[in-house]
């Protein structure tokens, strides 16, 4: 039995300790906001926060995060009021939206560490893939939060 702290709630799950956090979230806990895109930490669709830092859940064995504070898109806010969510709505960022939970988690972590990120900071921190091509709006939305 593994105990995880996700979105400030304790969850006990019976899984192989090598199971990636992504699949524990999706298949064991039915928290499907965190997405599967590539399975090899290339696309970032599975980005969550581990102790406030952006991390790729598809390559994070669940055994590594038993003592950590895990935040998923479902925990960013319960009502869509997180500044990143509000900015994403205001800038109409999502198109298909599949990559956006990961994109937003990466943006939220960046803004925690650097409240006024430069374009170069954004380039370095946001390495998620969006096939719809929402990057200009992601950038604009992040800058709009920094300004507020």
């Amino acid at each position: 039995m593994i105990t995880l702290t996700i979105n400030e709630q304790k969850h006990e799950v019976e899984v192989d300790p090598s199971t990636p956090l992504l699949w524990v979230l999706r298949d064991k806990l039915a928290m499907t906001g965190t997405k599967f895109g590539c399975g090899i930490a290339q696309c970032g669709a599975c980005t969550v926060h581990i102790n406030g830092m952006a991390a790729r859940a598809c390559v994070t064995p669940v055994s590594m995060v038993t003592d950590a504070k895990i935040t998923t898109i479902e925990g960013l806010s319960t009502d869509g009021s997180h500044p990143v969510q509000a900015a994403w709505v205001a800038h109409e960022v999502p198109q298909c939206g599949y990559c956006q939970p990961g994109m937003m988690m990466a943006a939220a972590a960046l803004l925690t560490q650097k409240p006024n990120p430069t374009d170069a900071d954004i380039d370095a921190a946001i390495t998620n893939i969006c096939r719809c091509g929402t990057y200009p709006r992601v950038r604009a939305a992040i800058h709009s939060i920094a300004k507020t």
């Binding site: 895109g37 370095a124 990057y135 200009p136």
Partner: peptide
Amino acid sequence: GNYHDYPMVKMAEMPVV
């Protein structure tokens, strides 16, 4: 087989549009 050998443009390479 995956995005490492079939890569995509990411934020850093996206121009102003």
